[in-house]
Design a protein around this nucleic acid. Structure first.
Ligand SMILES: [Mn+2]
Ligand SMILES: [Mn+2]
Ligand SMILES: [Zn+2]
Ligand SMILES: [Zn+2]
Lengths: 141, 141
DNA sequence: TCAAAGAATAGATTTAATCTAAATATAGAT
DNA sequence: ATCTATATTTAGATTAAATCTATTCTTTGA
């Protein structure tokens, strides 16, 4: 929907050596426009109203390709669906056990490990779980 | 298989107010005997060789019940299956992207948050991902 | 001894994700 | 411009983890 995010998406694709097809631009652009860490199906439904519509397989293919190329990241921690994040720079997440929303948390300062017990560390993240602000308010009522 | 882990499992179930049926003892006991963070199906297969065998549904039911009661913990970060951990005390994990093994990492000292941006923090963990010791060795060959 | 509640079970169902095989689109060569 | 090879998209079939359903078995305690 948003012209500037489509432009940004196109640039990101080119930079990653992925040809910027209409469908790929639409998928990445949809992800860039939100901070809600949507699932593949959420993105598919969001794009479904567009003409021409995009196949579900293409949404999955594109997201997986982008993850493989390190353009976006995915997480399987909350709920049953894999969720996606257009921001790859290190930051933390808070997962709400009730509404399944995922919130960004500013990166905590801490030692960055490259090795741990002989294992090669490629990424590290602080994961917080609990009840989010909104759900806490709901509970009070 | 192991008598002492069955005894421990039985005690844990009683302490959590869950009646210690044969099946529940077998499931929890199997989880106590390993540090490999097995999936429900791994536990099911391990128990399958026992007589009498246990239903897959019972394995899932028991594990979910134990997670709900806070006796064990589950994680959905590596591979496609949910993995289980009999250790609930705070510790970190390393996930190998290649072999999907999960390794325990001693808890890093760090500030324990109870609130973050207004969200109620119930648990927090450092998550490490990369290539494990064994897989690194494999690669060298 | 019997009724009611608690557990376990096999198999059906759901659902996220992947796979398949065919159709379209794109790019490079002639 | 036309042809050809490659890349991309697609709808629908398939897979696999997890849950659900409806029945059977077990335990408890009146
Ligand atoms: Mn994020
Ligand atoms: Mn562990
Ligand atoms: Zn919430
Ligand atoms: Zn490994």
């Amino acid at each position: 929907m948003n012209k500037s995010s489509q432009c940004e998406a196109s640039e990101m694709l080119k930079r990653a050596g992925i040809s910027p097809s209409y469908q790929r631009i639409m998928v990445l652009s949809a992800l860039l426009e939100t901070d809600e860490h949507p699932s593949a199906d959420t993105i598919y439904k969001k794009l479904g109203s567009n003409i021409p519509a995009i196949s579900r397989a293409t949404v999955y293919n594109t997201l997986n390709l982008l993850v493989d190329r390190g353009v976006i990241q995915s997480m399987r921690t909350a709920g049953s669906e894999t969720r996606f994040d257009s921001i790859c720079e290190a930051h933390s997440h808070f997962f709400c056990r009730k509404c399944k929303k995922i919130y960004d948390i500013a990166k905590q300062i801490g030692e960055i490990k490259t090795e741990l017990d002989g294992h090669l560390v490629e990424s590290q993240e602080f994961v917080y779980k609990g009840l989010c602000r909104e759900c806490r308010e709901e509970m009070k009522k």
